[in-house]
Design a protein around this nucleic acid. Structure first.
Lengths: 127, 127
DNA sequence: CTGTATCCTGGATGATACTG
DNA sequence: CAGTATCATCCAGGATACAG
């Protein structure tokens, strides 16, 4: 578990973001919520592959950080609606910028990987 | 290990970024290299807490993705200089944007957490 | 429906030792 | 100096069962 170095100017704040950024589930859930409010099981279906446990854990993290709102509707059966907070929207906005980079440069990255792998293969064959 | 859902428009490209973003070491190393070229052991010292192994692994990942250059100087003892590629700079630029968000909103996040924890405490006491 | 509690496993990471 | 190889550990996350 990487600890942040006091020598770098990364220091504390970035850690908090990294904790959310690094967690792919958080991003996926927030991206989904950026489209509009959503209920638990609905999220579960659309964020495919996420386990019930991880959705629960992720949502509580996001709620704790003030990125997501949790609203309980007093019905039977109970309904819980999740939505992005203003803070959440402000973050997802920046995440979108990262996403854009990924879209714009995926070709370059893939090319780099192939070049790298070919190079390594050549070296291996050389041996 | 989160798989990306075809239903979301996240699809493939974001995964690649996430793989680097999620890896805190990658960010720390790249941030460091954004200041200028650096040698292996120098990196090791400045990215405090990173093991030799993880630095090695991280650098190879970054190199493979075309984010970092590796230049071997034919000297004795051998010297290897790492530096960001243009692609690497373009990414770190966006990462900086995320970092900015963290700096700007760290207060809000902390406040949210404290509020959340207090709320939970109240509920617990209530029980 | 919306969760929480347990248990368990794979893969990521660190420690250590060795090499060109 | 700049790594790689191997082994041991630890914890995030999935599966499952239960609860309000």
């Amino acid at each position: 578990m990487p600890r942040v170095n006091a020598n770098t100017d990364l220091d504390c704040p970035i850690r908090d973001v990294l904790d959310r950024m690094g967690d792919a589930w958080s991003l996926l859930v927030m991206l989904e919520l950026s489209r509009g409010p959503c209920r638990f099981n609905a999220l579960r279906r659309v964020v495919d592959g996420i386990s019930q446990r991880m959705l629960s854990v992720t949502l509580r993290h996001l709620e704790r950080d003030g990125l997501v709102n949790r609203r309980v509707l007093p019905l039977t059966p109970p309904q819980v609606e999740y939505s992005l907070t203003t803070l959440g929207f402000s973050l997802i906005e920046r995440v979108e910028i990262m996403r854009q980079w990924a879209v714009e440069n995926q070709t370059a990255v893939r090319a780099a990987r192939q070049a790298y792998d070919r190079r390594r293969e050549a070296v291996a064959a050389d041996t």
